[in-house]
Amino acid sequence: MKYSGIDLHSNNSVVTVTDEEDRVVAEKRLPNDLAKILALLSPWREELAGVVVESTFNWYWLVDGLQAAGFKVHLANTTAIKKYEGLKHSGDETDARYLAHLLRLGILPTGTILAPEQRAVRDLARKRMQLVRSRTTHILAVENITARQQSARISSNQVKQLTADAVDRMPWPEDVALAVKTNVAVIATLSAQIDLLEKRLQEKVGARTEYGLLTSVPGIGQVLATTILLETGPIDRFAAAGNFASYARCVDSVRTSNGKKKGEGNTKNGNKYLAWAFVEAANFALRYCAEAKRFYERKKAKTNNVVAIKALAHKLARACFHILKERKPFDVTRCFA
């Protein structure tokens, strides 16, 4: 049996094939050309137990190409892999061999490989988040300029409604007005593109049963339901609610010894988009759900605001797991008991 590890970079990859005793039988640095990578692996196709690819920013083309060629591909969860720190030397070749080594031992931390069409919709939701963050930057810029010029802030909704003509009517110096108008123009453009993406996402997920069930949870509206649904993927990949809450970064990451905290674990292991979504949902739930408010106040009385919000986010994450798993509407009594 043979095992392959690929250390993927932006413009090249180190491809390694090892045997059952971790001896290298083939190894080469290749440009990121699918045909050349397949040519190196093809002689070992029938013997390969699998090919490990790092979960880097550019893995889509390689994983899809290898799977289309008939190889069994494993996506390595790089945030969960920690190499032995006593090594005197390491490089791309040793990294590729280490991936193959973990696969041979059966202890390779892996990520889920979604179908290309599912990834495309998920990435569309991430693109929307990127545009919203960019728009917020320009909105804050206009709010700050307004505060400097007239000692009073305007709301974000008022900023979104500003036009070039409205800015011209304000008693500001010409250069200040020009600066604001550039922000207003960018805000208008971003808002139009955000609306376009939201409409497309609604077409893709709005009719799904799980989407409707998620919107029954206090604090979760259309945007958060879309994010949670697309970032979760197949709910069956999580063995229990605790696993899902951990993936959503709603579980503490600590190292203890003799009952004392000695540090933190791997805080980046999980999905940052789900972490954001559940904290946002927790903040909204405080406004509209009396049971959530009471749960938050109990936790806050014993700890502090940050811990209480995180605890509420954890509750909502577990509730969403059961909703997606059991296909049942949200149960307030069960969630905040």
Rank of each mutant, 00 (worst) to 15 (best):
S4E: 01
I6R: 01
I6D: 00
S10L: 12
N12I: 01
S13T: 12
R23T: 15
K28G: 02
D33G: 01
R45M: 10
V52H: 01
V52G: 00
E54R: 07
L62E: 01
V63W: 09
V63A: 15
G65A: 13
Q67R: 15
F71H: 10
V73A: 03
H74E: 10
A76V: 00
K83Y: 04
Y84A: 12
G91F: 06
D92E: 04
L102C: 00
L105R: 05
L105I: 07
R122L: 12
D123G: 05
A125Y: 15
R126H: 11
R128K: 11
Q130I: 13
R135I: 15
L140G: 15
L140C: 15
V142F: 07
R148G: 14
Q149C: 14
R153Y: 09
S156F: 15
Q158G: 04
K160W: 07
T163R: 00
P171L: 08
A179Y: 02
V180P: 12
V184D: 11
V186C: 08
T189M: 08
T189Y: 07
T189Q: 10
I194R: 11
K199Q: 11
L201G: 10
E210I: 06
P218F: 09
G221V: 12
V223N: 04
T232N: 01
I235H: 07
A241S: 12
R249F: 06
K261M: 10
K261R: 13
K261N: 09
E264R: 07
G265M: 05
N269K: 05
N271K: 14
Y273R: 13
V279W: 08
E280K: 14
A285E: 02
R287D: 08
T303Q: 06
N305C: 07
V306A: 06
C320L: 09
F321Q: 00
P329V: 05
D331L: 03
V332K: 04
T333I: 13
C335V: 09
